[in-house]
Design a protein around this nucleic acid. Sequence first.
DNA 1: TAAAATATTTACCAAATGGTTAAATTAAAT
DNA 2: ATTTAATTTAACCATTTGGTAAATATTTTA
Lengths: 200, 200
Amino acid sequence: MVNKELTLDTEEKILQAATKVFERDGYAGARMQVIADEAGMNKALLHYYFRSKEKLFSKIFLEKYNKFFSTLSILADQEMDFFEKIDKVIDSYMEMLIQNPEMPSMLINTITHHPELIQKLNTEGAQKMRIVLQSESEKGNIIAVESLQILTSVVGLCIMPFLAKPIAMHVFKLDMDFYQQVLLNRGPFVKKAVRAILKP
Amino acid sequence: MVNKELTLDTEEKILQAATKVFERDGYAGARMQVIADEAGMNKALLHYYFRSKEKLFSKIFLEKYNKFFSTLSILADQEMDFFEKIDKVIDSYMEMLIQNPEMPSMLINTITHHPELIQKLNTEGAQKMRIVLQSESEKGNIIAVESLQILTSVVGLCIMPFLAKPIAMHVFKLDMDFYQQVLLNRGPFVKKAVRAILKP
DNA sequence: TAAAATATTTACCAAATGGTTAAATTAAAT
DNA sequence: ATTTAATTTAACCATTTGGTAAATATTTTA
């Protein structure tokens, strides 16, 4: 590697372009040529830097999702009141979703098309969270129910309006501004909802 | 059309095979040849009966999802106690999901790859449900909040364990039997959760 | 039974696509 | 300045894929 700065720049351009295209079109729908156009360069360069479409996607996917899962891990380890912790989890979910509304659907698409990538996701953070829930349940601080039911509920409550956005906007004939407002109000609503659900 | 019975049979074989493949591989990942193999016939026959991959997918997709939405519509119209109605909605969701666990991810994939098909979904049933919620909210029987927040919550609570299945099984190292039990317990859990959320 | 209509198969094609190769260009090192 | 190494481009290729045309088989009709 000779010109480090320039190289990183090209690599970065590719990654950004590829992220955009993969998010918009999914893996199977994405075209290397389109990514190259988007990055303003030749298609062969993509292969020069990342060997294959598969490897390019894998890198982007794992980096993005493992980063999110690792914030979960950090939160789980922090010393704080249980409901405060739950609120923080919801906050971090919502923040990530507002910045990055396509993450859930990209994850779903990846389950369908690249199940092997799912195996490479960090499991630590979510596991810790499950243990926290089990412990609170045993102490009687929250309802006694399989912790998976709770975890999927929190995640589902957070991401659903993002997943359903195109359908909901069509079905209820809503405009973007209105829907954006619904999304921004989601965090506080979910916090209340989760408290209500968890009350023993 | 000469031999009605035989023709329907072939058509039905194609539709079943295509449904299976589209569900498993998504639209972009599905191959006409694979569908033909699955149906035990020649690829050209698919085009003879359905013209194109697009048309075949479109037919399957709309039939499947509009059927579900129309049961929503029927439920919304029925004269019954509000919470009983909500329970019935949850029951019909869960029943559909147990029979057809890939429906949510197929819908998400379609949003990504065929946004124009979303425009063709029946809107009636969901609209009626929204009005029911708004009315109950105004009467003070449930919390006062934008009805979309409630609708997305109910849907999200129902479908999340199905969407998350592959990830959850990996992250928490669960076996199929255990997860199936979680899914079967989901209905009652969601009913309780929704009641807790809606309590004014 | 003959021919007309319909259903199915075989063989093929054009376009698209991921990927490669080798040449050209640029930058770094000596 | 010349060599060496890294980067970029242009041209090309093999494969895959949706789709078609024409031949063949089957069923219906007259």
